[in-house]
Design a protein around this nucleic acid. Structure first.
Lengths: 233, 233
DNA sequence: CAGTGGTCTAGACCACGGT
DNA sequence: CCGTGGTCTAGACCACTGG
């Protein structure tokens, strides 16, 4: 008997996944309508809807009005990347976290930054360089530019004890961001700051942040050699 | 008047975001109950529920039965990383894609792989090395191990014209995976294959894949120097 | 234009977990 | 215990889009 007393949306979701994985519904197949599935599972259409909506979010199926629901052909996987504050990253490794400010300057917005964040070139930005340590070993070098027009209070903060990352999280929480991940050679002052050989391959995360459409900050976070970032789907 | 004729779940969701961003509800604040919000917005509780559930998924709020809904304190951002097949990555750059098989060997499962994927060490795995080109320039070097026990048909495939990535997507779609991103130096045969200087910093993505709990494949994808991966939230 | 998903409602019961 | 979110239902109307 396939009948359960009550089919929850999770039951429906899992059963649909099951049928896709076991090729009952191969890629590209048109699924039955919500109403038909609701009848088959003995539940309300809303229940089926929620199950299928979740699968559509994950990219497992594609849905169109009037067109129905199809098993996705080329699943563009959506991996989830959990980004925490450096402090927590370090502490979750079981290491002691330490922060140090390297430099803090108020400068005119460089052209490359202006075009990148869409800031007027005339305006002033706060340029910060900081180090983050794990058990007193260099863990991450952070270089950041903050749009003073978006966050005027940055002028009053000296960042001696709190990192700009955590400060901004208090000041401008829940912003939007764009991330770029790459591998860069240890050049400039990086070998010195991170205590690695010049040219060593380093993992870098760049992030541009906007708050309600206004550019807030651009940051380069360069990690100690050997750092790995984890994601899953 | 803040009253709209009908408040959709998106209206509720956006208004809640608005209040969080404008500090009407600072971090840690306990929100009104679903019922109270439903009254305020003049909609059903289910509508509020869906709005708040979505925000909880994003990590903007935290919800507990009896405990109510709170604005998240330390927003562990969930960035979404769209992972497509190499072919599409290349084609979306506007370049011509080309694939080439470098080597294909059936080998006993190495110990490190066995422990990594939880494969019995006695079993045999298919070891593949491939190149992916963009406009005839080396774009990605792929080194992959496939669990023959999980995908026996791999023994009949010669991978002369189709890459293992795309083949596996047909064979074992919708699997689970764990990703690791890192920076590695161009060593071994990488300088040769990718046409870069030895020691050059390269972006690498490693992926372990399971299908219904069974280990399927482990792959190292090493990208051409300068490659950046994009994500957003 | 007609079928499909998208959404909303009013009500109900349940499950978890603080008090 | 009992308030809160978690879920389900039966029904309704709407919006998009394929034929």
């Amino acid at each position: 008997m396939t009948s359960r007393k009550t089919a929850s949306f999770q039951d429906v979701r899992d059963e649909v996944i099951e049928r896709i994985q076991t090729r009952v519904w191969p890629q590209g197949t048109l699924l039955p309508t919500e109403l038909e599935l609701a009848e088959e599972f003995g539940c309300a259409r809303a229940t089926v809807n929620r199950a299928l909506r979740e699968l559509a979010d994950r990219g497992v199926v594609q849905r169109k009005r009037k067109g129905g629901t199809r098993v996705a052909r080329r699943p563009t996987k959506q991996a989830r990347l959990a980004i925490a504050v450096v402090r927590r990253t370090v502490e979750e490794m079981g290491a002691a976290y330490r922060y140090a400010l390297v430099s803090r300057d108020l400068v005119p917005c460089p052209a490359w930054l202006g075009s990148r964040l869409q800031i007027d070139e005339g305006s002033r930005v706060m340029h910060l360089r900081c180090m983050h340590y794990a058990d007193n070993r260099p863990f991450q070098f952070e270089e950041r530019w903050i749009n003073t027009a978006a966050v005027p209070r940055v002028l009053e903060e000296d960042f001696a004890t709190i990192g700009p990352n955590e400060w901004l999280l208090e000041e401008v929480p829940f912003s939007d961001a764009e991330l770029f991940l790459s591998a860069v050679p240890a050049s400039g002052q990086l070998p010195e700051f991170l205590n690695v050989a010049p040219g060593a391959p380093l993992f870098r995360m760049e992030r541009s942040t906007w708050f309600r459409g206004q550019p807030v900050t651009f940051v380069q976070m360069t990690f100690q050699q050997g750092y790995q970032m984890r994601a899953s789907y």
